[in-house]
Amino acid sequence: MNAEEKTIRPGRMHYCPVCGHTIAQRIIGEVMDELGIRERTIGTAPVGCAVLLYDYFNCDIIECPHGRIPAVATGIKRMRPDNIVFAYGGDGDLLSIGLAETIHCANRGENITMIFINNAVYGMTGGQMAPTTLIGQQTITTPKGRMATETGAPLRICEMFETLASPVFIERVAVHDAPHMQRAKQAIRKAFQNQIEGKGFSFVEVLSMCPTHWKMGGKEACQFVGNEMAGYFPIKKFRDADG
C-alpha cells in the first residue's frame, strides 16, 4: 500500500460505451492522483448507474441510500474534517429524491466536493424522466416528450446555488469532447483543492452522455450534450470565491 498506487483500479468499467460516468470518474481519479489524496479520501457511491463506484476507486467508499449522499457526506466530514470527502451523484439522486439534502448541504457550506452527473435521465432504472430532462425530450415516462405544463421545466441547480451565500465554488462543465474534458478536469481539481484548503462547499455539475437511454449513437449523444443540453444548461463558472 503506497502513494504510488493509482486511484482508479486497472481494468474496464461496466458503463455503456461513451457514458459520461466513465469519463467523469477517470477525471476524478486523475485529480486525486495529482493531488496525492487517495489515501485520505472517503467517497460516496450513489444509487444509480454509478453505484459500483467502489469497484473502480481504490479508496474508502460508502454506498448511500438514494438521495441521501449529501447527508451521509456531511456526517463523515464533520467527524473526519482532515479527510477529503467527495459526494458523487446523478440527477435523480441529487436533484429529485435528495434535493432537500443537496440544497441544505450547500447552504451549510459543508467543506466537501460535490460532483453532480447530469445526464437528463434516470439511467439505472431504465430511462425515466429526470428533473433535468429537457423540454421535448422523450423518455420512457414522457413518451411524447417532456412538457413544461405537465412536469415543469428542467431544474438548473447551479443557478439555484447562486442564490446561496455559502458555496465557494460552482461550475458547470461537460465531457462530450476533449477541450471540455480539460475544463472539467480543471474545475474538479479546483473543487478538491478548495476542500484541502478548508474553503468550503465546492460543486461541479457535469453534463454527461447517456447514449443508451437517449437511444443515440455515441457521436450523436456527444452532440446532444454540446448543442441541446449546453443550450439550456450554460457551461460556465458561476462562482469562484478566489475570483
Partner: peptide, 26 residues
Amino acid sequence: GVFLQAESELAAINMVFGAASTGARA
C-alpha cells in the same frame, strides 16, 4: 462533539449513518 439540526429526519439519520461509518459514536 458535533451537534447538527438537520433539515429532516431523513437527513438526520443519514448524517448519523455517515458519522457512525467513520467509527465515531453517533
